[in-house]
Design a protein around this nucleic acid. Sequence first.
DNA 1: ACAAAAGTGTTACACTTACACCCATGT
DNA 2: ACATGGGTGTAAGTGTAACACTTTTGT
Lengths: 243, 243
Amino acid sequence: MLDKLKAPTPMRIEFSTDEFKVALATSVVVFGFDGENLKILVANKIGQPFEGDSIIPSSIVRIEEDPAYVAKELLTRITGRNDGMLEKLNGFAEPFRNPVGRVVNIAYYCTIRLDETSENNLRKEGYLWVNAHEVPRLAYDHNKILEYAKERLKRRVKGRPIGFNLLPAEFTLNNIQKLYECALGKEFDKRNFRRKLLKSQLLIETERFVRSSERAKRPSRLYMFNEKEYRTLSLKGYDFIYQ
Amino acid sequence: MLDKLKAPTPMRIEFSTDEFKVALATSVVVFGFDGENLKILVANKIGQPFEGDSIIPSSIVRIEEDPAYVAKELLTRITGRNDGMLEKLNGFAEPFRNPVGRVVNIAYYCTIRLDETSENNLRKEGYLWVNAHEVPRLAYDHNKILEYAKERLKRRVKGRPIGFNLLPAEFTLNNIQKLYECALGKEFDKRNFRRKLLKSQLLIETERFVRSSERAKRPSRLYMFNEKEYRTLSLKGYDFIYQ
DNA sequence: ACAAAAGTGTTACACTTACACCCATGT
DNA sequence: ACATGGGTGTAAGTGTAACACTTTTGT
């Protein structure tokens, strides 16, 4: 009685057994870049619910598992590689996001490089790339998760370098500009973009050149990332807030 | 069999009943500002586990409830008001964050104004304000959630206006500068700060003045927010990236 | 008159933006 | 020689940063 006067409305934080009735899942928005468009990985949803829709890579998280670990495993299985960043997006916990029952989804995103090895693995696992800005209807609230991921990628591009896991080891300035334009959804002036990027010390000029297409006559110079600087700027951030 | 060749390793997304064994909670990091320091609300944790530690406002989320709604209710009960923003931070889902069982926490943050009404209510509910940068040991992973919230607040301050729910209706330029300095953890040049802020059209100059302390002789001018502009800039963002 | 905090302007520099032509190469 | 995309420089304007003194008021 006296206690009640002192410690008023108690916080509702004492769990009873019938509150442990939620399930956990994780989904990963996997971004790629094919030189022209930003892509994400989807598979076809098999069986109900949402049969026929697409779905982003997802997995149950069992009662004893860490969602970050499960997401990492999922990603490794899909791409056949276990490098690359994996960043937490958010938890999605609306009551009816899954018609099967109450499921909370801890969502992640990552960027991976499109190459032969992972392409083969992806096909084997039943995934395919679709343009990140022309995505079909997705199962559950995955469209919402995707929108969230795209916003996060935008913010990321503005504040830290990007591309290390999206571009090939060597790439042209036009390649990386196109990547930035896709991610941010706007176009940049070639000269200004280059000046800004080169000033950042993020790129190393190579002595190699490629032709960007059959029609292009003059080859363009290849650059690679200055990995040390890339890492530094990834940590401390830099401004690409621009136009 | 044929299907297996076509649709390879299936995604683990078929839930069985024994996967619905997780509980849901929500916590809210409540920021306030007393003119000198950024504050957060804590209460004393009653009973095991973490007896004696502090705790940020938290609640169970029952199986049918929406965490956003529960958080809003919690906040209303604590502060006695139901205005003010409430923004989702993230889901915290590490396996052992709660020793009682697997609990996923959907965390939010908000900013509220320190005034008489809410002060009385807070005392009644057993909460108190502590400096956001001198917080004692908190129960569960609440210190981690708090750090996350402080980072988010920083980002928020840099990209959108802040203060509408933290400062009194009328305040001095020194007040708002101090708030920004607390939130961002750095000091600004008075002249540059004022120029920048006044240019943004965010403030309206009043004809009223206050003395900031007994020792201060000259009174300083009071300003109020231009609510329309504040809302506009809250939506579209503006740059306060600075020094 | 003095003490205390409020308030105010200028300058140098760096960055952003806008803009159009020549270059290197393959066909 | 021509067609194609690659590559380059400059000038005007805007924003940032650093800096110190005058003003107003209460005691």
